[in-house]
Design a protein around this nucleic acid. Structure first.
Lengths: 346, 346
DNA sequence: CATTTCTACTGTATCGTTACAGATTGCGCT
DNA sequence: AGCGCAATCTGTAACGATACAGTAGAAATG
C-alpha cells in the first residue's frame, strides 16, 4: 500500500497539484470508487461517508477533471453555439452569447462558439459537431422551414434548440419571437397614424419567419384597410443597397407613407434612404422597426420600435437544450416571446 | 490476438463508430504506438509506413479524440475568450469572436467564451481557467495599467494575449489600437475645421487607454492651439446619462464647438444630447468618434469617424496566443493598429 | 564471427473518471 | 450454527492517446 502510489500533493507538499478523486480517497482513507459515488450521491454509500467526502472535496477545492469524465462517459459538458458570421451587424449574437452564458454559469457547461459564413455550407459546423461528438447540445439560428440541420440533429439524436421555428412537421425545442404579431401590430400602429400605403422590409424568403412576417403584415393590411407598396430588397442586403432602393422608392410618385422594418440594422439604412429622398419621419411617413439592441430611438426618436430581447432568447434556448439533454420532451421546450410596445403601444 | 479485442467498426460493420488509433492500427496491421507516432511525423517511423498510415487515417476520416489527448497530455486545444458582459452595446465582442475564430478555424483550437460581469471580481474567470487548466491560452480585454489578471497569467505561465496594453513593466503579447494617435489626430481634424473649444468623452480612468487618449488629446490641444472643455462623464456610463450631461454642457454658455468621442455607442448618446440642446453637427460644432462597427455615418453623416477594426484585433490576438503557446517570445507578439481616416482624412 | 549500431516498430503504463462485478460486515431468522 | 440479505465499500478494466523503455532484425564494425 505504499509502493509506487502517487497522491497528488502528498508526494510534494509544496507544489500543490490539482486534487483528483485519488487525493480525496487518500485523505479520507476510502477507495476512489467510493469517493466517486459519494460525490454523485449514489444510494449505496453511507450518509456519513458522503458527508465526509463532500467536506474534504470542498476543502480541497476539488473539481472533476473534464477530460477524464469526457473520455469515460462521452459527456463533454459543452454547448455549441453555431453562429452565422454574416448575420451580425449590431451585437445580435453577443447578446445571445451573454444570455446563454447567464444560464450556463450555474452549470458545468461551457459554451463553445462555432462561427461559419453562410456563403459556405451551413451543414459543415453541425456535421463536425456530430462527427466528433464535441458537444452535448447545439444551438442554431437562421432557421428555414425545412431546415436540414434540424433534420440531421434530430436524426442523430443530438439535443438542440433553435432560434426560430421550422415548418415541416419537425418537433424540436425552439425559441422564437412572434413575428406575425409584430408585423400585424406594426400595420395597426401605422394605420392608427393615418398611414395607408405601407412598405415592408422583409427578411430573406428562405427563412421561416419570412412567412410569419408576411402573414402578419398581410392580415394587418386587410384588417386595418391598408395596401402594400412593394419593396424590392430584403433585410439581409448590404446597408448601402437598402438605402439606395428605399431612396428610389421614396422619390417615386407612389412612395409609401409607412414602412415596417424587420431588422434594426436595416432600419438605419432605411432611415438614411428616407432622408436622402428629402422625406422626414413623422411628417411624410412613419416607420415601425424591430430591434435587438435599443439604439434606433437614439438615432431617430420618431421611429416606432419594438424590442426583440435576444438575451432572453439566449436564456430560453440554453435552458431548453439542457432540459433536452436531461430528457425532457421537445414539445415542452418551445417558447415564443411577444412583441412589447414601449409606453403601452401609443 | 483474437480474444476480447474490439476494433471499432470491425466488430459491427453497420454501426460506423468513430475511428480511433486502434482502428487504424487494425487496418494497417501496425501497433497503436506506431500509428500515433506516424501521424505526428516522428523521425523513427519509416517513410512508407507514414504514408500508409496517413492514407488510411484520411480515408477513415480519423480525428484524434480530444478527451484522450487532453487527459494524457494536458493539452486542451481550447482558447478561452474572457468577455466583459457590460462593455458590450454594439457588437464589439461579436466582431472579436469572429476575428478570433477566423484564425482558429485552420487549427485544432476551439474557442470557449467565458463572460463575466465586471461588477463582480474580474479575476474569477481567469482563476477558474488557471485552476482547472481548462484552456491552453487566454484572451482578455479592458486592460488596466497594472492589470492583476496579466500578473497572474504571467506568473502561472499561461499563454495569453490582451486587447490593450499594460504599463507596469509587464511584457506580454497584446494588440492595441493607437488611441493616442487617434485623439491627437481627432483634435487636428477639429481644429482644421476651425474648432478650438473641445470636449473629450473619455474612457473610465482605470483603463490603460484612458492615459493614451488623454495624452494624445492634450498634446493635440497644445500642438494645434485649442483648449479643453471638461466633460464630467465617461464612455462607460449609461447612454441616458451621457446624453443628459452632454445636453447640459451644450446649453451652457461655454459649450464646446468640438467633441472627441472614444466609443461608437457613446457617440450615439452624445449626438442625442447635442440635438436635445438644439445644436447641430457641422453647424454649431463637429464631432470625431472612434467606432468598431460602421454605423455612425448612417446616423449622422456629419460625424467624423475612425474605424477601429476589432475583427482584425481578434485575428491578431488569436495568432499571438497560438504563437505564445508555441513558445514564441512575448516581445515579438505585440502589435498596434493605426487609426485610418476615411477618404484620406479630409 | 561476435559485437556494436542503427532503423523501424511495439508493449505497457498512465492520465482521471466511472461501470461493473465483487467483497466484507453485521444482523435477523430458522 | 448456518443461511440469506441488506448495507457499504472496493478492485479492476476500460475510455483514447502518448511517454517511455524496450525488441527484433539488418547492417556496419573490428
Amino acid at each position: 500500500m505504499e509502493n509506487k502510489e502517487n497522491f497528488g500533493q502528498a508526494a510534494s507538499p509544496a507544489a500543490r497539484e490539482r486534487p483528483t478523486l485519488k487525493t480525496i480517497a487518500f485523505m479520507t482513507g476510502l477507495g476512489v470508487t467510493t469517493v466517486s459515488r459519494a460525490l454523485k450521491d449514489a444510494p449505496d454509500i453511507g450518509a456519513e461517508t458522503k458527508e465526509r467526502v463532500r467536506m474534504v472535496a470542498r476543502q480541497l477545492g476539488y473539481q472533476p477533471n473534464r477530460a477524464g469524465v469526457r473520455l469515460r462517459t462521452g459527456k463533454t459538458n459543452v454547448i455549441a453555439l453555431v453562429l452565422s458570421i454574416d448575420e451580425e451587424i449590431m451585437g445580435f449574437s453577443s447578446q445571445m452569447v451573454f444570455g446563454i452564458s447567464e444560464v450556463l454559469s450555474g452549470t458545468p457547461y461551457h459554451i463553445v462558439v462555432t462561427p461559419h459564413s453562410h456563403s459556405k455550407d451551413p451543414m459543415l459546423p453541425v456535421r463536425y459537431i456530430l462527427d466528433t461528438g464535441s458537444a452535448d447540445g447545439v444551438i442554431i439560428s437562421r432557421i428555414e422551414p425545412d431546415d436540414p440541420r434540424v433534420r440531421l440533429l434530430t436524426e442523430r439524436g443530438m439535443p438542440f434548440a433553435t432560434h426560430g421555428r421550422t415548418d415541416a412537421g419537425l418537433t424540436h425545442p425552439f425559441h422564437d419571437f412572434n413575428n406575425e404579431a409584430f408585423a400585424h401590430q406594426a400595420v395597426e400602429r401605422l394605420v392608427k397614424r393615418g398611414r395607408r400605403r405601407i412598405a415592408l422590409l422583409q427578411p430573406p424568403s428562405k427563412l421561416t419567419y419570412y412567412a410569419h412576417i408576411r402573414i402578419g403584415f398581410q392580415t394587418g393590411l386587410h384588417d386595418y384597410g391598408a395596401e402594400e407598396v412593394p419593396l424590392r430588397v430584403n433585410s439581409d442586403a448590404p446597408l448601402a443597397d437598402i438605402r439606395d432602393v428605399v431612396e428610389v422608392m421614396m422619390r417615386s410618385p407612389n412612395a409609401p407613407d409607412g414602412i415596417v422594418c424587420s431588422a434594426g440594422s436595416a432600419a438605419i439604412a432605411v432611415n438614411a434612404g428616407i432622408e436622402a429622398a428629402g422625406k422626414a419621419l413623422g411628417r411624410d411617413l412613419d416607420m415601425v422597426s424591430k430591434q435587438s439592441v435599443p439604439i434606433l430611438n437614439w438615432i431617430r426618436p420618431e421611429i416606432i420600435t419594438v424590442q426583440e430581447d435576444v438575451r432572453q432568447a439566449g436564456r430560453e434556448m440554453a435552458k431548453a437544450v439542457i432540459a433536452r439533454i436531461d430528457g425532457v420532451e421537445p414539445e415542452l421546450l418551445q417558447s415564443i416571446s411577444q412583441p412589447i410596445w414601449p409606453e403601452g403601444g401609443r
